[in-house]
Amino acid sequence: MKGKFRIALLSDDRKMSEPLILLLESREYCVVLRTDFSRVLGALYSDPPDMIIIDLGAFTPERLKIVSELKTDSYFAIIPMIGFIRPSIEESVAWEQLPLDDYMVLPVQTPELFSRIALSIQRMERIFDHNPLTKLPGNTSIRRAVEKSMGKPRAVCYVDINLFKPYNDIYGFVRGDEVIRMLARIISNAVKESKEGGFSGHIGGDDFVFIVSGKEAEAVSQLVIDRFSMIVVNLFDKEAQARGYYISKDRQGRRQRIPLLGIAIAIVPTSNTAIQHYGEVAARAAELKKEAKASKASCYVIDCRKA
């Protein structure tokens, strides 16, 4: 099923790109050249490649924006991206703020290019702990992000799905995976739309974490709840949609009415100085979640304990 490795080459410099394409193609890479930078993002979104090589030219804001935009979408952040830069510019670049995976100085030396491509792919697989199902960062990244927000006016929000097991039993795990993927997109887009932005991660199974500013935590949580309930109806059959529940059997084989899927969110503000390390955040969240789960409908619960 999987065809050739596809590289998107973004450059409007024909003199550089044309011989390069021939070279890459001689190595069995499939190259798609994009020359119109104003339309490149849409083109990449509608036809995602396996790797991106971007000619950063004179570091125009337009090109830098392409790099940062792609790296903020979980589905695209894991696509390795190499930047080509002009020789004189290297020292003046704010590398800390440029989420590139690697760079090369023009003119490109071919043996070096091939090894960099191979290494970028390898590195991406090695250092990224993203969840294969949702492509969101996994536990190592989550831990790092939580620790970074301790003592700051942020809030760590733990999300999980109510009554997910009976859903999987009745509708099958393929459908269950679709629910998980949709929730992942809902969370990461809601976080991205928030004023101050934030972090989204996938612990595993139906457990997610997101971190946003303390001020926005409740609003973002409510948004995630609303959007999830709007979207999730698409994953039920017509009858369940109309009735608002589906039928499952409990351990004794009795028929049970199970409500359509909802979520519970536990919000732990990290400005609280009583919380000293990662484990405490998780422990508080676990307690709060019990509270949130007590309500049948989707809801969030916020940790209000004093320092």
Partner: peptide, 22 residues
Amino acid sequence: VSTVSNALILLGVNVVKALVLS
């Protein structure tokens, strides 16, 4: 997914904007 508003929620505003503008 069969409505544009649901598509926007799942794809994200930026993806849809870029898609439309291209």
